[in-house]
Simulated scan of single mutants.
Amino acid sequence: MKSKFYALLLIAVLVLTACGAKSQSRDFPNLTPSGTMESPSFENDFASGEKSYDGMSPNVSGESGLPPANVVRLVIRNAELSIVVDDPAKVMSTINQMAERMGGYVVSSNLWKSVNYSGIEVPEASISIRVPANLLNQAIDEIKNLTNDRQKDVLSENVSGQDVTKEYTDLNSRLANLEEAEAQLRSIMEEAKKTEDVLNVFNQLTYYREQIEVIKGQIKYYEESAALSAINVSIKAHEAVNPISVAGWKPSVTVSKALQALVNSMQVIVDAVIWIVISVIPVLIIIFLPLYLIFLAIRAAVRRSNKKRLAKKQADTVQPTNPKE
């Protein structure tokens, strides 16, 4: 009877020892997000729990998780125009109304006055608008139609496009991975028992949430930039561009020619000085410096010879006198 009791007691001790060892072997994972920022890590173990979390490190590698069929091509198209009109203020107001009619909006608008060659103040304006990308060409045509002559009064036109498909796809892949990692951390947080473990998981969640919001902002910027094209328009008055003409004489043209002649003359003078400093002066130094040194040496020798001759002549003219006894 006693032997059976001791056997049962020994089996119970072995079972309890095995359970204790199993409980101590449950470690909390060290979760370190991949990225440029360093996030907090876990250094403590769970004191209790029902699941093992080994190997559950969140996957935020940034690899593309979107199938090729779901890739959306994004191209940001913008335009810049410079036009000449009769009334810049009126044209600026018309462009403002056009943007609102197309479903866009005005980013900025400026109206000021400048002085032309005759001292007369003429108005100038600039306006930046955003219109739907599919209406960009229509908007450009309407702006050109505001001029008197599309061939002469459109000073410049530039339409540019930027393909951001790769950046957009990468951001969506990173967003999907970060959101998956956040979901894993939330499930791990539900299993955490110790206060310190809960705080560590909360720090991890805060880090991932911050990264998610940053990437969402970048994605929103690309989507809005691709959906709405920007148009920057510089508006000038004819008086500020066309030269003044008095009975066939154009003073502004004469002034321009005189200024150009002055620039050409100064260019010739500066070029001559540069050639003299860089090419002529070094050659003159190489040629005349040895000659000048020889001249100095000869002059010094002649002066020494003259001094000796003068001293000898003075010595010959002085006769010694003997005193009378």
Results as ranks from 00 to 15, higher is better:
Trp112Leu: 08
Leu14Cys: 15
Gln162Cys: 01
Val106Gly: 08
Phe46Asn: 06
Asn70Phe: 12
Ile11Asn: 10
Arg299Lys: 15
Ala297Cys: 13
Leu259Gly: 07
Pro29Leu: 02
Asp316Pro: 00
Asn70Tyr: 14
Ala99His: 07
Ile215Met: 14
Asn158Phe: 09
Asn242His: 00
Lys193Met: 01
Asn44Glu: 08
Leu175Thr: 02
Asn30Phe: 06
Lys22Met: 12
Phe295Glu: 13
Asn30Ser: 13
Ser109Glu: 15
Ala226Asn: 11
Leu178Gly: 04
Leu136Val: 05
Pro40Phe: 06
Asp149Val: 10
Val277Trp: 04
Pro282Gln: 06
Lys194Met: 09
Leu16Ala: 15
Asn172Ser: 05
Ala181His: 01
Val71Pro: 00
Val85Cys: 04
Val268Cys: 05
Leu171Asn: 10
Asn177Val: 01
Ile294Pro: 02
Ile287Phe: 11
Asp27Gln: 12
Thr147Val: 12
Ile129His: 00
Gln267His: 12
Met92Pro: 00
Ala315Ile: 02
Ile129Glu: 05
Ala176Gly: 09
Asn44Gly: 02
Ile235Met: 04
Arg309Asn: 06
Trp275Glu: 09
Asp27Met: 09
Leu135Pro: 01
Glu80Ile: 04
Thr165Ser: 10
Val283Arg: 10
Ile188Glu: 01
Glu142His: 12
Asn145Thr: 08
Ser41Glu: 06
Leu205Ile: 09
Arg77Asn: 09
Glu167Leu: 06
Ser93Glu: 13
Val84Asp: 03
Ala230His: 06
Ala79Met: 03
Ala300Tyr: 13
Ala301Asp: 02
Lys257Cys: 00
Ala240Arg: 11
Pro68Val: 00
Asn116Pro: 12
Lys308Phe: 03
Asp197Tyr: 01
Val273Gly: 08
